[in-house]
Design a protein around this nucleic acid. Structure first.
Lengths: 154, 154, 154, 154
DNA sequence: TTTT
DNA sequence: TTTT
């Protein structure tokens, strides 16, 4: 038995372009840096205040990783649903460190684009089309190796 | 503008009794250590595997902090809803560290007890009744300083 | 004890302008008609299909009702969080009917505007400024009777 | 593009045993009747009040439908996550009616048992073991046609 | 450190 | 590092 639920639901903007890499097994993994912010008026001073929270999002879900890589960029507004996971690592001083991430595992999680600001736009970020390693002149839609109609959930 | 959402939804068990303290302003703050777990069968080896994730929960919401202090204990099963917040601190070596917590701010968040295992039970943990600092022999319900009917959401 | 959770989370677009009314006690109540849609490719025919779901949202939460009345209009994209509630009513034939709504009760629920398409825009819908019943020529911001800085969460 | 989210999250108790049937295509479909309740103290009268809300849950997700059929019964406490869907039907007077349900589609939704009150217990409800239509003396675990270790997520 |  |  587990009877557990572990779910994070975020809506925010990407602070930079998605970062893609491949696992040792060759699977695509995409990292997002996502900002959420809340603002309020300080009761004491009357000042308007804002707090921005930064979230690390890691996408192992294959279909959603492709969407993120190809259609998101710096500034994109997204809905993300995943699980909280705290990862232990060792820093350069040999000290144990912990990092908490929102993880979209295989066949799990959700990712939905909430604005039209995608990697296909002419924008301040490089287009996502050629961002896949090894995508040469013969690239493009058919070079992706998958059918857009199947893969894009938005 | 914000247009942001920052929400964590957890169902799990407390790994130890809630820890209560007071802010400099005298407000009650309660910390929970909450475990969620998922299990699956390894495709390759056929082994049953389990991964437990530990979450730090911090309750600033006054009514919910009292509920947590008085009615939860080690082993309690709870539903928790809060916001993700990453806090920076400095360790003893003077190094910057980060800790991510699920925070229930004033008037925000939710906490619901999902089993009957509360601090009022005769259990392996000390009853919650006397856990408030300074609660002497004359303590008990009326010593709480609040009306149970008003405060307990479950 | 209850140990219950009843929560609906929706992101979609308004099918028409918000509808405002007042309760017998004078409280503002706002109704939204919200569409969510999902699309997929039919495995058999290869056709692209889409299903739109319409949700009735009822806002009793005072601050959020004002936001909805003043800042949303037909086409606005919103995040809504409320509770499911099924209401019984009697139709003109004297038959019992049931309607399920997503309800934001007093001090409960969430509403976040996800695009810039508000009632202040020059758009196809009438501006929200003067939509409050009885708002005359002397209306406007100060006529609202509340401080925008306090009330608007986005 | 859709950019939609349609999600209901419920924790409550079953009002009766799950009801199983098969689609024309032979797929298992399970219906649950789920109660959530909230209680509060009436400010005016001081009375304690409670409101129970009943939800119709329909499970098309194959693995979760089997879990529901075999492990849930009247009184079981469950976490359910699905999408809101309103279905039109015609009553015996030929009148159009609408019913809103929480639907767990194929490969979608979540279902988690939150207590130990399952169909395997000796309880007031008939055990789920033999509830599948046509399950004869040769039934039981192996007769289920699936591996418990694979199917049961809790 | 929980739970099954 | 985002967004308003």
């Amino acid at each position: 038995m587990a009877g557990s639920v572990n779910k994070a639901i975020l809506i925010g903007h990407l602070g930079r372009d998605p970062e893609s890499r491949n696992s040792q097994g060759g699977d695509l993994i995409v990292n997002l840096s996502l900002a959420t912010s809340e603002s309020w008026k300080d009761k004491a001073t009357g000042e308007r205040k804002e707090r921005t929270e930064w979230h690390r999002v890691v996408i192992f879900n294959e279909a959603l990783a492709k969407v993120a890589r190809d259609y998101l960029r710096k500034g994109s507004k997204v809905y993300v649903e995943g699980a909280l996971q705290t990862r232990k690592w060792t820093d350069q001083q040999g000290q144990e460190r912990y990092t908490t991430e929102v993880v979209l595992q295989r066949f799990r999680g959700e990712l939905t684009l909430l604005d039209g600001k995608t990697g296909d736009d002419t924008g301040r970020s490089a287009p996502r089309e050629n961002s896949a390693p090894g995508a040469g002149p013969g690239g493009g839609a058919s070079g992706r190796g998958y059918d857009l109609d199947d893969e894009i959930p938005f």
